[in-house]
Design a protein around this nucleic acid. Structure first.
Lengths: 260, 260
DNA sequence: CGTCCACCTTGACCTCAGGTCAAGGTCAAG
DNA sequence: CTTGACCTTGACCTGAGGTCAAGGTGGACG
């Protein structure tokens, strides 16, 4: 009877304010908008004041203000209101910058799924042309991803090291022979030879040995080094043996190599 | 005993990957990263493969990919991977645009807490200089907010109408007398006079009466009109009477005024 | 040997801004 | 009288983890 006198229903109010019914009730539950009077059927009837408040709340919420903050905000004086707004605005700006950074990361990802920056991808791209086995390249890709996670601050010099190594035909040759060595027996005498040649090659280029010193200054060095170094070696005992021999020779020559 | 052999602990793995322990376990629960072997104490021991996977997941998650999608994504072939990535990138771009729009809204809010666009603020700012009572201006501000929520498509012409009204000294004078009238008795004879003058003034400017025709084409016209019109009048019977008289006169002159 | 501290384990519940479902009451039109 | 659109409440669900509780484990110190 008294149906249309008191005001509009929740559905109309929600539609006018551009929110859902559930959202309006949510605001009631949080105390952001007072519950209006009910009509004889128990329906909420909204007047212009309620609508005004609803619009204010919705506008702030749409701007990204936390619902928990809106109540105090709307009931505060103009000065605190302005201060809080600029605070929220700053947080929004930060979030935008964050999202832009994420998008850029993603954009790099879509060029190559290896989760690596351009320079590292370039190094990997050179490898097949130099005669490296595709599986070896894939392994190096994984090692780079791992290294980047474990030693982000040393990543650039690690890539630089790789670049220099690829410029040295002897090293390229030795590396490819090491890859072939995986199929040898662990006690094959050629392994010791290969280890000697590798160690000599490394010792001839002191700048390549500088990097370990750099990342030795960080904590957890042994764990990180071991992680990168043993990656992919678990099921290849020959590789583990080769690595151990090279490390021994380097240590014998006075180069500090962390033990894992 | 076997403590340090199997790999690193969850805390170290989490630190290396740049996430929390809880996050790593969350990934396990979702099946994104396989649970590694446990040591004799029941601790999870992570190897390089686990770490690699963890870093891949974290990188995608940090780029905003839903965790639920990451599993299929990482196990998919390169083609679908690339397609999905560009999809995610598009969504990120949309979100950024959305946030920028929010920030701009907020920026306008911080200039004036009235939740109104610049043009409407300018109109309100003119009012005190023309001699309007600050309380009246506040009421107009509320009416504008309400109008914008209820009739967004008619808001611009509503503001235009207000601008024209403020340019007419006679209308300004009549409006201010209407404000004073709030303190009169509802049966004060001056009210009828005032209503006549107001109606005559309105009828002399046909362009001001065009707006109601425009927003009469929308549904719920009566409810919206009534909402805006009766806002703030509940506790002022004199105002209601004045409005009713003016509406009667307009209707008598052939102008269609919706009845609420 | 005891004790402390840092780390690990599981499980249950909390967050935010609502969405979804269920079960039923109310109103206007055909 | 039925249909369909609207309203009511309440309980549970979402995503991506965070927080708390209660207890096990390992290493260092005295």
């Amino acid at each position: 009877m008294n149906r249309s006198a008191g005001g509009i229903t929740i559905g109309q109010a929600a539609a006018f304010a551009g929110v859902t019914i559930k959202t309006v009730r949510h605001y009631h539950k949080l105390g952001l908008v007072e519950e209006p009077e009910r009509d004889s059927s128990g329906y909420r009837r909204y007047g212009s004041d309620d609508l005004l408040r609803l619009v204010q709340v919705r506008t702030l919420a749409a701007a990204g203000v936390q619902l928990a903050d809106i109540g105090t905000l709307l009931d505060a004086d103009a000065e605190r209101f302005a201060a809080a707004l600029s605070d929220v605005e700053q947080r929004l700006t930060d979030r935008i910058d964050d999202l832009v950074a994420r998008r850029d990361t993603l954009h790099r990802l879509s060029d190559d799924r290896a989760l690596l920056p351009d320079r590292a991808c370039a190094v990997l791209d050179r490898m097949p042309g130099l005669g490296f086995d595709p599986d070896y390249v894939a392994g190096q890709r994984e090692a780079l991803v791992l290294f980047r996670a474990l030693v982000p601050e040393g990543f650039d010099s690690f890539v630089t090291q790789l670049e220099h190594r690829l410029d040295d035909p002897e090293f390229v040759d030795l590396t490819q022979r090491s890859w072939d060595a995986l199929s040898w027996e662990p006690d094959d005498p050629r392994i010791a030879e290969l280890a000697s040649a590798l160690a000599d090659n490394l010792l001839a280029k002191p700048e390549l040995l500088a990097m370990p010193a750099e990342f030795r200054s960080q904590p957890d060095t042994a764990a990180r080094y071991g992680m990168v170094n043993t990656h992919g070696q678990e099921e290849w005992p020959t590789s583990a043996r080769l690595t151990a021999l090279v490390e021994d020779k380097l240590r014998a020559a006075g180069v500090p190599v962390p033990r894992q």
